[in-house]
Design a protein around this nucleic acid. Structure first.
Length: 649
RNA sequence: GCUGCUGUAGCUCAGUGGUAGAGCGCACCCUUGGUAAGGGUGAGGCCGGGAGUUCAAUCCUCCCCAGCAGCACCA
């Protein structure tokens, strides 16, 4: 048998028979290592201890203790298998499908006639612990395709048969055995079930999920679990989830009296005075930014005849998701059918099309705080983050293809400044490329996709590529922020669209005196005010930056003799442009402090006898225990400065 | 839209086949209290909507609406 040379992380190399497994390698070093080992990393690939190595390679033996990423991957993956085995032991008629590792844990999809109940999850967890305690060995086998298909057909596992059919013919079919239970799986896995920490996992929830992510196919039951290396990490994770729930914008929206929603208008927001203050403050800020950024602001109609939507192509594609308004005029022959605008683009093109445009007018940047209505599927609605009525900070840049890169880079700079001003520093860019169903030449897609990528690079940002996720007419950049519990939300966007100018016959006169077609860049920075304010609330856990806080200062009287002075303080603050209010209620200062703290008021000025006499205030900042006595003039100057939006400071 | 769960006072939630309860909040009274809940009294409910079963339904069954989790969707 031929020899191979394996190089260890410390640089030492040893010679082994070709086909040696990492388990044998570990055993050759120390029996304790062989026992502790969970997997290997072979030439950068995560490698099962039982897989043979046939050529020279770099090798590292992973253990539960020292290798976080690998350990968690294996623990979670083995949990998926152990859970599937537990489910089939309890309910033998349940059909298994797939169970991948995800962030913090795993899920596994099952086909079962009866729904899993919360009590069932408890049963499954108990059974899983039993399997872990058995310390059943994990074995891997490579099967022939027809053998595997026959095996699954006999056992009534149609989903597995379908999976095998989808695996390319030249790939080996690997079977993993956890004791006497077996699953088709790429691997790698642990050595035995006992290597999963029995006290560091938890089944979290069960929900429906379509087989193969296809809404036309069977709805399966997906059980989610989380798993960690030890009990403490699990506990930390559960605590984090509890904390995150407190930051939920829907909860804080009520506590801070920002907005409410009700069944008569599902997916639409009733903004209360506090919430509307945040909204308008943000809108004023965006308006200033856009003026500075070279945009002209416009406004367009809400109710627009279907003819325009037919022309733009939206009627065909999105009719189901539009709010239709039919008007039955007395003398009309037929009803007028309109749609509430689901987007602003076609309307902006109408403005562009007024009068003749010259190449000298390009790039033309047109912005609108555009109210849109989309009939989103009921299950998609989520607080104020996914709604049916919303206002985009929309904008369209009419330009030439040559100007795309510059305009994109310019927009990225614009957006990053806005996000930074609003307290966001961790956001990501995704570049969605050509989908299967598309229009236009591949050459043009090549150029435009490159233009977007170049612009990101020029602006100094990395981006992730979402293959095939672009719109049918062009690629797009998505700017994504994350909510309190780690769900991603697309906020900003930039889409290249040569299609709509074509359909709506936009053109400009070029240097050569002939008509040319502009390209349109759809772009939004916040996305929608609704979603962005939701994210803003969660990001700051309700403690909005002072300039955005709806209630900035409460002046609270400690004794009623201080009332007049409190009102005077409020007047001075208001005159300085600060949102201040007096709390003269017959309540103890403790009570007032608590109430306004819960309401996330950033500054409480407490006024007692002493402050009245000395013309001072006792300043207490949200989140701080300590209060500070300072002269009235000083605090007014200070808060005036803090209330100034970052772009005006 | 799909699967599952939920819907009782303004809010958070108990509860029962014989038309309801707590805490907080609200109103009024007492209390003038120094930085996260002072005390008392009181008002407040078509038990999400509709139909059915029953002598009787907030409770059981069905349909609808809305919310929650996930999936699918997101111009």
């Amino acid at each position: 048998m031929s020899q191979i040379s394996l190089t260890f992380p410390d640089g030492n190399a040893r010679s082994y028979d070709a086909g040696v497994t990492p388990a044998e390698v570990a055993a050759s070093i120390a029996t304790s290592l062989a026992k502790k080992a969970i997997s290997a990393t072979v030439d950068g690939q995560h490698w099962d201890l039982a897989w043979p190595i046939t050529q020279d390679a770099q090798i590292a033996i992973n253990t539960l203790k020292d290798n976080d990423a690998e350990a968690l991957e294996l623990i979670r993956h083995d949990c998926a298998h152990i859970m599937a085995r537990a489910v089939q032991e309890i309910w033998p008629d349940v059909k298994v499908t797939i169970g991948p590792v995800i962030e913090h844990g795993w899920y596994y999809d099952f086909d079962r006639a009866e729904p899993f109940t919360p009590e069932d999850l408890g049963l499954i967890e108990k059974k899983m612990k039993e399997i872990i305690n058995l310390r059943d060995p994990v074995r891997t086998e490579v099967w022939e395709r027809d053998v595997a298909v026959k095996y699954y057909e006999e056992r009534g596992e149609p989903y597995k048969v379908e999976l095998i059919d989808a695996i390319p013919g030249n790939e080996p079919l690997r079977m993993y055995w956890h004791g006497d239970w077996q699953d088709l799986c790429r691997g790698p896995h642990l050595q035995h079930t006992g290597q999963v920490p029995a006290d560091a996992f938890k089944l979290m929830s069960v929900a429906g999920a379509y087989w193969r992510g296809d809404s036309s196919r069977a709805m399966l039951q997906r059980i989610y679990g989380v798993a960690f290396k030890n009990k403490d990490d699990l506990k930390k994770h559960l605590t984090m989830l509890e904390e995150a729930a407190k930051r939920d914008h829907r909860k804080l929206g009520g506590e801070m009296d920002l907005f409410h929603m009700q069944p008569e208008a599902p997916g639409q927001v009733f903004w209360h005075p506090n919430g509307w203050t945040v909204y308008t403050e943000l809108q004023d800020y965006m308006r200033r930014q856009q003026r500075r950024g070279g945009y002209v602001e416009v406004n367009t109609p809400q109710v627009v005849d279907r003819k325009l939507w037919e022309k733009s192509g939206h009627w065909d594609k999105y009719q189901e998701n539009m709010f239709i308004v039919e008007v039955d005029e007395e003398h009309a022959r037929e009803k007028a059918i309109n749609a509430l605008k689901p987007m602003n683009c076609p309307c902006h093109v109408q403005i562009f099309n007024q009068g003749l445009k010259s190449y000298r007018d390009l790039p033309l940047r047109m912005a609108e705080f555009g109210s849109c209505a989309r009939y989103e599927p009921s299950g998609a609605l989520h607080g104020i983050m996914r709604v049916r009525g919303f206002t985009q900070d929309d904008g369209h840049i009419f330009c030439t293809e040559d100007q795309i890169t510059d305009e994109t880079a310019r927009f990225i700079a614009f957006l990053s400044k806005v996000y930074a001003d609003l307290g966001f520093h961790n956001w990501t860019i995704k570049l969605s490329t050509r989908p299967e169903q598309r229009i236009g030449e591949d050459e043009s897609w090549d150029r435009v996709e490159k233009a977007l990528g170049d612009a990101c690079n020029a602006a100094g940002y990395e981006y992730e590529i979402l293959e095939g996720e672009g719109a049918f007419y062009g690629p797009k950049l998505e700017f994504t922020l994350t909510d309190a519990i780690g769900r991603d939300w697309q906020c900003g966007t930039l889409q290249v669209d040569p299609f709509l100018p074509e359909r709506l016959e936009a053109n400009y006169i070029g240097e050569d005196g002939a008509k040319h077609r502009p390209v349109m860049l759809h772009r939004a920075t916040l996305g929608s005010f609704e979603r962005f304010i939701g994210i803003l609330i969660e990001e700051h856990a309700g403690k909005l930056p002072f300039w955005l806080a709806p209630r900035q200062v409460v002046v609270a009287a400690i004794v009623s003799d201080a009332n007049d002075y409190c009102l005077e303080v409020v007047e001075q603050l208001k005159a300085a442009g600060v949102r201040a209010e007096a709390d003269l209620r017959n309540e103890k200062i403790n009570y007032k402090v608590r109430e306004h703290s819960v309401g996330k008021v950033p500054v409480i000025l407490a006024i007692g006898k002493k402050e009245v006499e000395e013309r001072t205030v006792s300043t207490r900042r949200l989140g701080e225990k300590q209060s500070k006595v300072q002269p009235l003039d000083e605090i007014v100057t200070q808060l005036k400065a803090e209330a100034t939006p970052p772009d005006l400071a």
